[in-house]
C-alpha cells in the first residue's frame, strides 16, 4: 500500500465517520421524537448545533487540563476510526487488531474525566464518577463478547473476521447468545436509558457536560457522533458480516443503532449500583454462556 493511499485513508475514514455519525444522531433524535408523537428536528439539525457551538463568541476554559481533556477524548475516537475496517478502506486494521481498538475506545472516557475534573463542578464530578462506573459495568460483558467472538473466528484481525463471515455465515447466526449480550452492552455504551446514569439531566444537570460551553460542548457533540459510529461499526463487523459495499454497510449501522433507540424511550433510569448489578448479572451471564458454548464447540 502506497504512502499516499494510506494518507488519504487517514483523512477520509474519520471524516466519513463524522458524517455518518451526524446522520446516526439525527436518526436517534428523529425516532425518539416520532415515538413521542412529535415532528422532530430538521434534517441538518445536528450539524447546525455543532457549528453554532463552535462559533460562539465567548468561550470559557477552566484551564489547560480542561482543554487537553477535550482534545484527548476527540483524539481517542478519531484514532479509533482508522482501526475500523469499512468497505474499500482498511486503514491500520491489519497493523492494530481489535485489542488496540478496545484500548482506544477507553481513552475518551479518561479524557473526559480529566477535562471535567478541572471544572470543579460537583455535578460534573458526580457525572464523571458515574461515567467511569458505567464503563466498568459495560466493559466486562463487552470484553467477554469480544473474547468469545475472537475465539470462534480464531483471529483478532477485524478484516479477517469480516472475510471469514463472508465465506461462512454471519456471527449473529453462528453465536446468537454472544450477539444478544453484545447488543445489551452497546445499549449501555451508548448511554441510553435505562443506563443513562451519567447524563441524567433532571438529576445531576447533564453530569460531565455541566460546565461545557461553546466549542467544548461542540466537541462533545462531535464525540457523540464518532462514538455511535465506532460502536455500531464494531458490532456490525463482529456479528453482521461487515459490509460488502457501502450500500449494505450503512443500513446495517442504522439498524444496530435503531434497536437501542426503539426501546430506550419506554425506560426510566436505573440507580448507579443497579446498573452495575444488572449489567454484571444478565449480559455478563449471557456472554459467559456464549463463551462456554464457543469453547465447547471448538
Amino acid at each position: 500500500m502506497s504512502g499516499q493511499h494510506i494518507f488519504l485513508e487517514l483523512i477520509l475514514m474519520p471524516l466519513l465517520a463524522f458524517m455518518i455519525g451526524l446522520f446516526l444522531v439525527l436518526m436517534m433524535r428523529k425516532v425518539r421524537a416520532r415515538i413521542e408523537r412529535r415532528v422532530g428536528p430538521p434534517f441538518l439539525q445536528p450539524l447546525w448545533d455543532i457549528i453554532k457551538l463552535y462559533v460562539k463568541k465567548m468561550q470559557i476554559s477552566h484551564g489547560v487540563i480542561h482543554d487537553l481533556g477535550i482534545i484527548m477524548l476527540l483524539g481517542g475516537y478519531i484514532t479509533a476510526e482508522v482501526f475500523l475496517p469499512v468497505p474499500g478502506m482498511s486503514g491500520f486494521t491489519s497493523q492494530g487488531d481489535i485489542i488496540t481498538l478496545i484500548y482506544l475506545m477507553m481513552v475518551p472516557s479518561l479524557g473526559l474525566a480529566l477535562g471535567v475534573g478541572q471544572c470543579a463542578n460537583p455535578n460534573g464530578s458526580i457525572g464523571i464518577s458515574r461515567a467511569l462506573t458505567a464503563m466498568l459495568a459495560y466493559d466486562i460483558p463487552f470484553i467477554v463478547v469480544i473474547a468469545g467472538a475472537c475465539l470462534y473466528y480464531g483471529t483478532t484481525d477485524l478484516t479477517e473476521i469480516i472475510a471469514l463471515q463472508k465465506s461462512q455465515q454471519w456471527g449473529l447466526l453462528s453465536m446468537p447468545i454472544l450477539a444478544l449480550a453484545g447488543l445489551i452492552a452497546i445499549h449501555a455504551m451508548l448511554g441510553k436509558e435505562p443506563f443513562e446514569i451519567y447524563v441524567a439531566p433532571a438529576e445531576i444537570a447533564t453530569g460531565p457536560m455541566v460546565e461545557m460551553s461553546g466549542k467544548y460542548l461542540g466537541s462533545l457533540f462531535v464525540m457523540q457522533c464518532l462514538q455511535i459510529y465506532t460502536i455500531t461499526v464494531l458490532y456490525t463487523s463482529l456479528f453482521l458480516g461487515g459490509g460488502y459495499t457501502w450500500f449494505d454497510f450503512i443500513p446495517k449501522l442504522f439498524l444496530v443503532a435503531l434497536l437501542p433507540v426503539m426501546i430506550t424511550v419506554i425506560f426510566p433510569r436505573y440507580k448507579t449500583d443497579d446498573v452495575l448489578r444488572w449489567l454484571w448479572k444478565w449480559p455478563t451471564g449471557l456472554a459467559l454462556l456464549g463463551l462456554a458454548i464457543v469453547v465447547l464447540q471448538g
Binding site: R29, A33, E36, R37, R38, V39, G40, P41, P42, Q45, W48, D49, K52, I60, P201, A202, A205, T206, M209, V210, E211, M212, S213, L217
Partner: peptide
Amino acid sequence: MTSRFDMERLGIQPMVTPRQAD
C-alpha cells in the same frame, strides 16, 4: 415543547445549565 407544538422542529431544545444555553 411536547407533541402538540414541538419546539424541536424549529431547532429549539431545552438545556439544563447556563453554560450550554443560548
